[in-house]
Each structure stands twice: as structure tokens, then as C-alpha cells.
């Protein structure tokens, strides 16, 4: 189960509103490579992990992703404080504003609502961990793209932290994948699903 800690994982303190940027950054909450999808993906997949390391890594990273959703929410919230109707119209935030005012709604930069269609939970540890490594890279490049567009150091700072975490998570998933592969029966290498066809694992049935 989970506990809530009344703090952000990394501080977010943004002085200047920027609704146009808020709409872009929101994609890292509810977009195809966003934090909500990441948390849902890892916390769903962990049940099918056959080995202790994978279970722990998916649990811990999935938990951290939940903390990241809160950071993105805080960034978008602070970027859309005290807006005038004029600012809303000029920035292109108007379409979002009509539906959600300045509430935090998980959607992509293109306005597509959050969907579990952007993630999988296959019941196969190898397939899942490859997806997870790809997911971390996609999230990292989304942050890279955002950093190409953001000038405000108040916004860049937490985004840079989130970007670094994608790189660390990619590394950890690579290690989890290696652990799974090392535990496969050599004769069945890649042929079976180590989560379901327990005959092909060495360490544990």
C-alpha cells in the first residue's frame, strides 16, 4: 500500500506564469510518454515479474513515477496562476481553458486525454522490461524537447531533474532485464515466457 508525503520529491517554485508552456509540459502528465502512464505501466507489470529484483525495481520506480505526476501537476499549476483573459487568448491556452479552466487534467500536448492505450502489461517479463526501457528513453527525449523550448530557469530546473531520473530508471530496467535473462534456461533462451512458462527458468519454479 501507499502513504502520501506532504512534500514534492524535488522543489517546484515558478514565479512567472506561462500558459503556453503549461500546455506543452502537461504532456508529461497525461501524454503517451508521461508520468501517469509510466506509473500505471510499472505498477501493473510488476505482478508478472518472476524474480525478486524485477518486483522491487518495478515497485520502486512505479512509486517514484507517482511522485513525478505530482511535480508535473505543480509545474502546470504554477504556470497557470493569476491569468488574465487576455493572456489566455494570446497564449493559445483558450481551448484548454474552456474545458478545464486552470484545473489539472491529464492530456497530451496535442490535447488527447490520457489513455492506457499508450502502455502494455504483457505478462511476459522480457517483453515488459524492453517496453520499460523504451518508455524511459521516450520520456527522456520528451524532456529534452521541452528543454529546447523552455528558457525560464525556474521551469528548467525541475524538468532537468525529471529528465535525469529517466536516465537512471533506464539503467535500472536494463539491470532487471539482465537479471531475468541470466535466469533463463540456456536451452530455452528467448523461446518461452519466464513469467508463465516456469519450466524455462533456472533460479526458481
Amino acid at each position: 500500500m501507499w502513504d502520501y508525503h506532504k512534500k514534492l520529491m524535488y522543489p517546484v517554485r515558478i514565479a512567472k506564469p506561462d500558459p503556453a508552456m503549461a500546455k506543452l509540459i502537461m504532456t508529461q502528465l497525461g501524454g503517451p510518454d508521461g508520468e501517469l502512464g509510466a506509473a500505471t505501466r510499472y505498477l501493473s507489470q510488476r505482478f508478472a515479474q518472476p524474480y525478486a529484483q524485477g518486483k522491487a525495481i518495478l515497485t520502486d520506480i512505479g512509486t517514484e513515477e507517482l511522485a513525478h505526476t505530482e511535480m508535473i501537476g505543480a509545474i502546470v499549476y504554477q504556470l497557470t496562476r493569476c491569468l488574465t483573459p487576455e493572456q489566455i487568448k494570446k497564449s493559445g491556452f483558450d481551448a484548454y481553458f474552456v474545458d478545464h479552466t486552470t484545473g489539472i487534467y491529464p492530456q497530451s500536448a496535442g490535447g488527447v486525454p490520457f489513455s492506457a492505450e499508450s502502455l502494455q502489461s504483457t505478462g511476459d517479463a522480457i517483453a515488459d522490461l524492453f517496453e520499460d526501457m523504451a518508455a524511459e528513453q521516450k520520456a527522456r527525449l520528451s524532456y529534452d524537447n521541452l528543454l529546447r523550448l523552455i528558457d525560464d530557469p525556474d521551469v528548467r530546473d525541475p524538468i532537468k531533474f525529471l529528465r535525469e531520473r529517466e536516465i537512471v530508471h533506464f539503467q535500472r530496467f536494463g539491470e532487471a532485464l539482465r537479471d531475468v535473462q541470466e535466469n533463463l534456461d540456456a536451452k530455452n533462451y528467448y523461446a518461452y515466457n519466464p513469467s508463465f512458462d516456469t519450466c524455462c527458468t533456472r533460479k526458481k519454479t
Binding site: 510488476r46 518486483k55 522491487a56
Partner: peptide, 9 residues
């Protein structure tokens, strides 16, 4: 020992 099994599920 954080990784030790069994996990809650």
C-alpha cells in the same frame, strides 16, 4: 533485504 520475497501479492 528490501527485495526479499514474498511480495504482498
Amino acid at each position: 533485504n528490501w527485495i526479499d520475497e514474498p511480495w504482498p501479492w
